[in-house]
Design a binder for these strands. Sequence first.
DNA 1: CTAGTTGCAAAGAGTTTGCATGGCG
DNA 2: CGCCATGCAAACTCTTTGCAACTAG
Lengths: 131, 131
Amino acid sequence: MPKYMTKQRKAFLEFLSEHSDEQLSVKQIAVALEDRNISLSAVYRNLSALEEDGKIRRVSKSGSREVYYQYIGDEHCRDCLHLSCEKCGKTFHMGVSGAETLIKNVALAENFAVDKSNTVLYGICKACQKK
Amino acid sequence: MPKYMTKQRKAFLEFLSEHSDEQLSVKQIAVALEDRNISLSAVYRNLSALEEDGKIRRVSKSGSREVYYQYIGDEHCRDCLHLSCEKCGKTFHMGVSGAETLIKNVALAENFAVDKSNTVLYGICKACQKK
DNA sequence: CTAGTTGCAAAGAGTTTGCATGGCG
DNA sequence: CGCCATGCAAACTCTTTGCAACTAG
């Protein structure tokens, strides 16, 4: 949707893609970007535009009432299921073959067509399980 | 957490459990209950109390920025994965055996321990697929 | 030059809180 | 009777919007 690449928008996209394995709150994003002279309203407007555009995804975390955003810019991510760790907050990708198997299982068992792009599985990742 | 069963709280729980296969917005709940003389603040307070208490779950829907709540009062639901239809908004339960298999697959493939109670798979249900 | 984008401030929506009143147990 | 829950209104926080100024193409 964005037409012009302003310096604000550039900084915005840079920041999000550098943190593409994290789920960021609006506040985190705003604070990180105010050094770069991006106003709060620009943050909100860019979030909306990029979400419509499919470049980022809005997600909700377990405990929190806050809204979080995550970068999904590259095509790769669109074919993955996402696993979100409830302890460290990082996101893991479940590759195409694994995801397809899982989705087929649900389809068979329940006659339900899972929407990959919108589904996030929550749990505890390998690293955090060890702690 | 609730100590007294007031008539408001009774109506509140009745309404939610009658609609346990739907995800309800705060607004829907508030409108439905204002006939029964429940103020907006009582709705909010009860939502918080019951969420802490594990009787309801807060979920987020695909397109919307709104917060939704769903009744999960009975023990049965705690052992299920939930499938939420993006068209009709209804929730389907994926029984224990199917859910366990699915969760084991994820654990094997990605070393990730899925948190059943917090995971909702989004997609299109059988009935809506036919339309 | 022109239309999209930004910043600011004000408006709006959603949620929480303080306090006096009322009702459950 | 004591304490919790409620209702109301005010306070807060988060998000959106109008408008003038700016800037990428």
